[in-house]
Simulated assay, not measured.
Amino acid sequence: MDHMLATLSGSSQAALIDRDIAHIARVMHVSLRGDFGGPILPPAYWRRRLNALLDAGHLSHAQLCKVDGLLLQLAHFEATPQPEWERFAPAVAAPFQPACAVETLHSA
């Protein structure tokens, strides 16, 4: 995205940055919550994306405020302890074995 920002006009850059910020705002929390296997994308990924926006420059005051708010949300997520069911979830779930298959294995 950085290379593309350098070649766009001012209004196109602002629109692209707005879309990127809106996308991150929509998916970051869902991605961090993930599933029982953990986050889909880790906090470091989102921090890199947000810092890349800041490093690109050309952000309006409103865009800076939105990125700052997302960074605060990310910091809050990292500082908040995970619920018990997420902390102790297995890294890889065991394959499901139907009860009849288990009984057959034990009786053999």
Rank of each mutant, 00 (worst) to 15 (best):
Q82P: 02
G69H: 11
R26L: 07
R26G: 07
A6Q: 12
D68C: 03
R48T: 10
H61M: 07
Y45C: 02
A79K: 13
P83Q: 05
Q13K: 14
A79D: 15
H61F: 09
H58T: 07
I40L: 14
K66P: 00
H29M: 09
R47T: 04
T80N: 01
R19G: 10
A15H: 09
H29S: 13
D2W: 00
A15Y: 08
Q97R: 12
Q73R: 13
R87Y: 11
H106W: 10
A91Y: 01
L71N: 14
S12D: 15
M1L: 10
D35A: 12
I40E: 14
P83C: 01
A91I: 00
F36Q: 08
Q97A: 05
L53I: 04
L64T: 11
R87W: 11
L64W: 11
M28G: 05
E86D: 08
E84F: 13
D18V: 02
V30G: 14
L72Y: 12
L59Y: 14
Q82A: 13
H29V: 01
A89Q: 02
A6D: 11
W85T: 04
P43H: 06
H29G: 13
F88G: 01
E84D: 11
E103K: 04
R87Q: 15
L64F: 08
P98D: 02
P95W: 01
L50K: 12
K66T: 06
L74Q: 13
P39G: 03
A94D: 05
R33Q: 15
V67S: 10
T80D: 04
L54R: 14
D18F: 08
K66Q: 15
A94E: 08
T80L: 04
L59W: 10
T7D: 09
P42K: 07
P83E: 02
L54H: 15
V30D: 15
F36C: 03
Q82E: 12
H76E: 15
E103I: 00
G38A: 06
N51W: 09
I17Y: 07
L41G: 02
H76V: 08
V27R: 13
M1R: 12
L8R: 12
S60E: 04
H76K: 11
P42M: 04
L5P: 00
I21L: 05
G10D: 12
D68I: 05
V102S: 04
A101V: 07
A99Q: 06
G34Y: 04
C100H: 15
A99C: 01
S60P: 03
A62C: 03
R47W: 05
L54P: 00
C65F: 09
P81W: 10
H29E: 15
N51F: 07
W46P: 01
S107Y: 08
P90S: 03
A6I: 03
A89T: 00
Y45A: 08
A91K: 00
C100D: 09
R26K: 14
R48I: 05
T7F: 00
R87L: 06
V102L: 05
R48L: 13
G38D: 06
D55H: 07
Q63S: 06
Y45F: 14
F96C: 02
I40Y: 12
M28E: 04
A79F: 11
F36A: 07
D35T: 06
A25F: 09
A15R: 11
L72W: 07
E78H: 00
Q63G: 05
M28L: 10
